[in-house]
């Protein structure tokens, strides 16, 4: 017996160690993701996030990603955050400020990475469990280019009063337009019914903020604007078939990739508070010649040469 015990003990220990190591090799982590709205910008960001994370982790770690795409309103964002906390995810990733704000509001100890937040420096999101990346689009450039394309007195601003970042963008553009003697007209989109405002108002041009609600119905909005021959400028990118006269935006992919890099570090044990947040400032200026033709606008050659891309 004594002999067998002496022989078995090391074997048992070795088996236990091997099992522990094997478990570590394939440890499963859960990442919870909340999109402020199910819009192409955040979808593209998430696609890049998943691709980059898969590449980073390889087969070392099994990852389960739980994606929440609530209808954009404060209760849904809050519920989505609570669900992920209840799922006991290891890490939360949020796209857009409203989803980020909802997750922060829960004061959970789960590490949080945000992406797709416009001007994150202006949003209050300090905390040792938080890091992430956002972008900044200079709104003054939007006013400048619109002015170069068309003489206008009134600028309609499509925003959503329930999305704080969108409100900030409205306030900023109102100040900038005011400096140029341009009147701004609020067009608050909180539900689909609010699109009717576009039938009532006819501003000379329209600026579309990064609001998720607005972008949920963007094709309908563009159709309504097209009927009235009102040019539109957006700070989120659009596919070529979408006839927005001008976009000045930051592409979603780099933010998705950076969020994945941060996730990789956090899963490896780095504290989120020690990972520097980042604001992307590079932008892409896209002019849509098809939209310009429909609106009867000619792009001056000196403007066209500024464009990163011209959709013909």
């Amino acid at each position: 017996m004594h002999f067998f015990a002496r022989l078995l003990l090391p074997i048992l220990l070795a088996v236990c160690m091997a099992l522990t190591a094997a478990a570590d090799l394939c440890a499963e982590v859960r990442i919870g993701v909340i999109m402020t709205g199910d819009i192409p910008y955040y979808q593209a960001m998430h696609k890049s996030f998943v691709e980059e994370l898969t590449q980073q982790l390889g087969s070392r770690q099994k990852v389960e990603i739980i994606v929440q795409k609530p209808f954009p309103n404060p209760i849904s964002w809050s519920n989505a955050a609570r669900k992920l906390i209840a799922f006991d995810v290891n890490l939360m990733v949020t796209y857009g400020w409203p989803a980020t704000a909802a997750a922060l509001h829960e004061k959970s100890t789960i590490p949080l990475i945000y992406a797709g937040v416009h001007e994150p420096d202006h949003a209050a999101m300090a905390g040792k469990n938080v890091t992430g990346c956002g972008y900044k689009v200079p709104l003054s450039s939007i006013v400048r280019y619109l002015k170069n394309l068309k003489s206008f007195q009134t600028l309609g601003v499509l925003y959503s009063s329930i999305e704080e970042d969108s409100v900030r963008q409205y306030e900023a553009i109102r100040g900038l337009a005011g400096q140029q003697g341009i009147l701004t007209r609020k067009i608050d989109i909180r539900s689909r019914n609010d699109l009717a405002q576009l039938k009532e108002h006819s501003p000379d041009a329209v600026f579309i903020t990064g609001s998720s609600l607005t972008h949920l119905w963007i094709e309908e909005i563009l159709a309504l604007l097209g009927q009235k021959k009102i040019p539109a400028a957006d700070i989120l990118p659009h596919p070529p078939e979408s006839e927005v006269l001008m976009t000045l935006s930051h592409p979603p992919q780099p933010q998705g990739r950076m969020a994945a890099e941060m996730a990789g570090q956090i899963l490896a044990g780095v504290s989120p508070g020690s990972i520097a947040a980042h604001t992307f400032r590079e932008t892409e200026l896209v002019f849509h010649q098809g939209a310009a033709r429909s609106l009867g606008i000619n792009f001056p050659i000196h403007l066209l040469i500024e464009a990163t891309r011209v959709v013909r």
Binding site: K136, V137, P138, S140, S141, R144, L248, H250, R281, E282, T283, E284, L285, H302, I305, E306, T308
Partner: peptide, 11 residues
Amino acid sequence: ASAIFAVLDGR
């Protein structure tokens, strides 16, 4: 002018 606009726009 293009160089100035590029920096203003964040390009």
